[in-house]
Design a protein around this nucleic acid. Sequence first.
RNA 1: GCGCCUCUAGCUCAACGGCAGAGCAACGGACUCUUAAUCCGCAGGUUCCGGGUUCAAAUCCCGGGGGGCGCACCA
Length: 506
Amino acid sequence: MTIDSDSDGDESPTHYFDALSSERRKKREILSEQGIDPYPSRFDRTATAEELHARHGGLEADVRTGETVRMAGRLTSIRGHGRLSFATLNDVTGSVQLLMQEANLSEQAGAVLAAFDLGDWVGAEGEAITSRREELSVDVKELWLLSKALRPLPDKWHGLTETDTRYRQREVDLLANPESRRVFDIRFRAIAAMRRHMVSEEFIEVETPILQPQAGGALARPFFTHSNALDIDLSLRIAPELYLKRLVVGGYERVFEIARNFRNEGVSTRHSPEFTALEAYRAFGDVTEGMELSEQLVVKAAESAVGRMTFAVGERAIDLTPPWPRRQLLDLLEAAVGHRLHPTDPVEDVRAVCRDRGLDILPEWGSGKLIFELYDALLLPTITDPLFVCGFPVEVSPLARHTSSDPTMADRFELCIDGKEFANGYSELNIPEEQEERFDAMTVAAAKGDLEAHPADLAFVRALEYGLPPTSGIGLGVDRLIMLLAEVEAIRDVILFPMMRPEPTD
RNA sequence: GCGCCUCUAGCUCAACGGCAGAGCAACGGACUCUUAAUCCGCAGGUUCCGGGUUCAAAUCCCGGGGGGCGCACCA
């Protein structure tokens, strides 16, 4: 019987059959014939690479520690010298060298060594020693195959570079490219740090629906799906905002969610249809607390994930050292266009400014929306270091409290870093009638064809009627923060499995 | 959605109208201190897919697909 005849993979679209894979199957078969299970059920290790280096780092050459260790990991390099072989074993904490002298190996270890391929998961037992080149190594006596890699690893020097494959087969990217591991380690540390900070500030982490009868909390086009049980169409959430505020109504004074949001919009290096936001709501605070919390979160994430405050993305240098300046949007815009604009200005006047700047505008937009567009086009791209832009038109802020002295402006900020919006926050609108009026205005816009108009959410208005305390709310773009901390330019580099077209089936 | 670029061995890349190649990985062999090990040997291809031009196409042209970048929308 040939080794490959028991494989059903020949015609599978994801299986390529070639000599490489065949050789690996053959080696697996040879071990089985020798009574060695190529897929043992478990392995008990006594040390990770990190622990071993912590215990025995910095020794001179040719030292024997007397400590026997059992280690496990993936084999990423083999350097054979006849009856002596070196190998590199990688585990989640790092790597350690295996030193395998034929004379020291058990019979089983010899058989396992003979059947090794790069990429195999192996277990090794032996004394921790240093080699003649001072490298901490395990002088192996016993070896186990823990799982066979039937497919060869990508080029050991160049790694996997094709971006398409890196995203589609992230597992291969992660095992082959240390840089990819570095980026995601930053992600996990940064998120953990932000979660710790939220908990230390006595926020409660909650989970709110992703499947919603009506997606709200942001101005965006949703994805749609269908419930067979209820026979209703549902939207995937575009923001958790409305549900989180309902929890504040319910008495949870500080809540947050690290929420996956879904927006059926363009894909670019800065936009993913599926992205992660941290949203937080704190009772009794206003927009000021939101700015403070945003600043603390970003700083904690940077400290904990990378331990510094300066970053270089492409040609741009960014300094996160707090405190960050706060500027009024209308002041910044006045400096940029030469005269003061306001949402109460005649719409023709603001349109003229937009046209002078070459902006594409829609006829149904009011002065407030046009002012926001000017900010987006003229101000945002020029901002590199963190800046809080404060005070946005109510027209583009349907869920924010209006400024006490000006009903057309909202107590809202955007945190801008590196030409992008990183966070958005405001004093929450908690007056039910006003919220209902804002929704009505949005309904009119939707009727005119605005696909991103915020739909009226009467369950939310009803919640407000039970009383939402004064509340400070923020939303922070987690993926963009990770891009900055990891100094990468593509959002898909910080998302483990970014949305992709299905693999071609040929 | 529009424009530009790209797709060749498992991986990284050459060849750019004239025999499809190298390095790594694999396979066979030598080697007890390597770490991109070294050395000798051997093997590996639907050049993304389909059509066209040509004596001859990986190469030029047309169409399709995947990916990247830029623009536009959004966070």
